[in-house]
Amino acid sequence: MQVTWGNVTVTFSNPEEAKKYAEKVARKLGGQVELHNGQFRIK
């Protein structure tokens, strides 16, 4: 499962870890987490 924002992509084998990481990054950037085609995207 991947977490992407800007031109950065981070890949996780565990979807739960990916979700936690995406939420943490979104909080830092003041963005929203979207699940899109099996990727968490931060907008």
Score class of each variant (00 low, 15 high):
Glu16Ser: 11
Gly6Asp: 11
Asn7Gly: 09
Asn37Gly: 08
Trp5Arg: 02
Asn37Phe: 05
Thr11Arg: 11
Ala22Phe: 02
Thr9Asn: 05
Lys43Cys: 10
Lys28Val: 13
Val10Ile: 14
Glu17Thr: 13
Ala18Tyr: 02
Gln2Trp: 06
Gln32Asn: 08
Val8Ser: 06
Ala22His: 00
Asn37Gln: 08
Ala26Ile: 03
Val10Trp: 13
Lys28His: 12
Gln2Asp: 09
Val33Gly: 00
Gly6Glu: 06
His36Arg: 08
Val25Pro: 00
Arg41Val: 15
Gln2Met: 11
Tyr21Leu: 04
Ala26Thr: 02
Gln32Ile: 15
Ala26Leu: 04
Ala18Gly: 03
Leu35Val: 12
Val8Arg: 09
Arg41Cys: 08
Glu17Pro: 03
Phe12Leu: 06
Lys19Asp: 02
Lys19Trp: 14
Arg41Leu: 15
Lys28Phe: 11
Ala18Pro: 00
Ile42Cys: 06
Phe12Glu: 00
Pro15His: 14
Val25Arg: 03
Glu16His: 12
Gly38Asp: 06
Leu29His: 07
Gly31Arg: 04
Lys43Val: 15
Lys28Arg: 13
Lys24Thr: 11
Gln2Phe: 07
His36Thr: 10
Pro15Ser: 12
Leu29Pro: 01
Lys43Thr: 15
Leu29Gln: 05
Pro15Arg: 14
Lys20Glu: 12
Met1Trp: 15
Phe40Gln: 02
Thr11Ile: 13
Val33Gln: 01
Glu23Gly: 05
Ser13Thr: 13
Glu16Tyr: 12
Leu35Met: 12
Lys19Gln: 10
Phe12Gly: 00
Ile42Gln: 01
Thr11Phe: 14
Thr4Ser: 13
Glu23Trp: 09
Leu35Asp: 05
Val25Met: 13
Gly38Thr: 03
Val10Lys: 11
Ser13His: 12
Lys24Asn: 09
Gly31Leu: 08
Trp5Met: 05
Glu34Asn: 04
Gly38Lys: 05
Phe12Arg: 01
His36Pro: 00
Gly30Trp: 04
Val25Lys: 04
Leu29Trp: 09
Ala22Asn: 00
Thr11Pro: 05
Pro15Lys: 14
Ala18Glu: 00
Gln32Leu: 12
Met1Ser: 11
Lys28Thr: 09
Val10Cys: 15
Glu34Val: 13
Gly30Ile: 03
Val10Glu: 04
Gln2Val: 12
Ser13Pro: 12
Gly6Cys: 13
Lys20Gly: 07
Gln39Ser: 11
Gln32His: 14
Lys24Ser: 12
Gly38Asn: 08
His36Met: 10
Pro15Asp: 06
Trp5Val: 11
Asn7Leu: 07
